[in-house]
């Protein structure tokens, strides 16, 4: 290394640093601005020119969100104003914490059920040579390529006819339909990478299919399982259109729905909305960064396969 000329190495370092800076600015900049805005008071973020960084860190917006349920929001209290949010606490603010729980509940159910359904189906398709294997595979494939937009109208009607509108169960089932086909593909491609001889050995040693799944495939596909769980949770946490159509009030509305309500309410405090946005962003981003390696291998495997 010592013998290499210095100039090209410095050139490369400068180039990399420059493009890395651009990259961070573009990818992380908007989120940083959102976070910065959420830590300012309404007065501070409506300053012109804007404060790039909060003059002082202020958790008033988050405080307002957490305590929104205890406040009686009426025309009067809104006029009296709220010091942190500049007096524009949206009328739906009290729904935010309940909707957070709804999002969490739905997300966890979807993640768990999705894995349960996908693992068994993916094992059967990847490992067992059964009549109807191709038909099953094509059914899954077909449901995966149908755009959700084609599902919205009929799903709404079906769920309305079943009387399940505005229930968390309806959301869970719907999100399963979105996530399961994709997870099945992630898992199939992972399972197919496990040496076939291990399966044969397990069967010879006395495992039935259930045993082979439990003793060979599950222990050896931990990364794919984590990726599937994360993917399912994030999809359901972030989903918007179905939740918009299938829910009506605080009983089943998820976080994105409540937040979108704030955004479209012109009287809403910007700082409050930004804080709500930050709350909605924290769990998924945390998960994504935590399980980065699994997600990358899992997502790309599934995508390349399909």
């Amino acid at each position: 290394m010592a013998g290499r000329p210095l100039a090209p190495r410095i050139g490369r370092a400068v180039l990399l640093a420059f493009f890395s800076a651009l990259f961070v600015l573009y990818v992380a900049g908007p989120v940083a601005w959102l976070v910065s805005s959420s830590l300012q008071t309404e007065a501070q973020i409506t300053a012109i020119p804007p404060n790039w960084l909060p003059p002082e860190v202020n958790f008033g917006n988050f405080d307002a969100i957490l305590n929104a349920a205890e406040r009686q929001v009426t025309y009067e209290t809104r006029r009296q104003g709220d010091p942190a949010t500049g007096g524009f606490l949206p009328s739906g603010a009290a729904n935010l914490i309940p909707s957070l729980w709804n999002s969490l509940t739905v997300g966890l159910w979807v993640a768990a059920l999705n894995l349960l359904l996908s693992v068994t189906a993916a094992y059967a398709i990847a490992v067992i040579d059964f009549r109807g294997r191709r038909a099953t595979l094509y059914t899954v494939l077909a449901t995966r390529v149908v755009p959700d937009i084609a599902l919205i109208v009929p799903l709404f009607l079906v769920i309305r006819n079943l009387g399940l509108i505005n229930t968390l169960g309806a959301l869970v089932v719907t999100y399963l339909a979105i996530t399961v086909p994709f997870t099945i593909f992630i898992l199939i491609s992972y399972f197919e990478g496990i040496p076939r001889d291990l399966y044969r050995a397990a069967r010879i040693d006395g495992c039935g299919h259930w045993g082979a799944l439990r003793h060979v495939y599950l222990p050896l596909s931990l990364p794919a399982l984590v990726a599937s769980l994360t993917f399912a949770f994030l999809t359901s946490w972030n989903e918007f259109v179905f939740a918009l159509v299938l829910t009506q009030n605080v009983a089943a509305q998820t976080l994105p729905i409540v937040i979108s309500g704030f955004v479209m309410d012109f009287t809403t405090s910007f700082s409050f909305v930004n804080a709500a946005g930050v709350i909605a962003i924290i769990p998924p981003v945390l998960m994504a960064v935590l399980f980065q390696r699994y997600i990358v291998s899992g997502l790309t495997a599934g995508a390349v396969k399909g």
Binding site: F23, V24, V27, A28, V31, L34, L234, W237, N238, F240, L255, P256, I259, S260, V263, G277, A280, I281, P284, V285, M287, A288, V289, Q292, I295
Partner: peptide, 12 residues
Amino acid sequence: VLLVPWATPSVV
């Protein structure tokens, strides 16, 4: 950092 936008809900 690349995963941040991917994980961000579309509403946000």
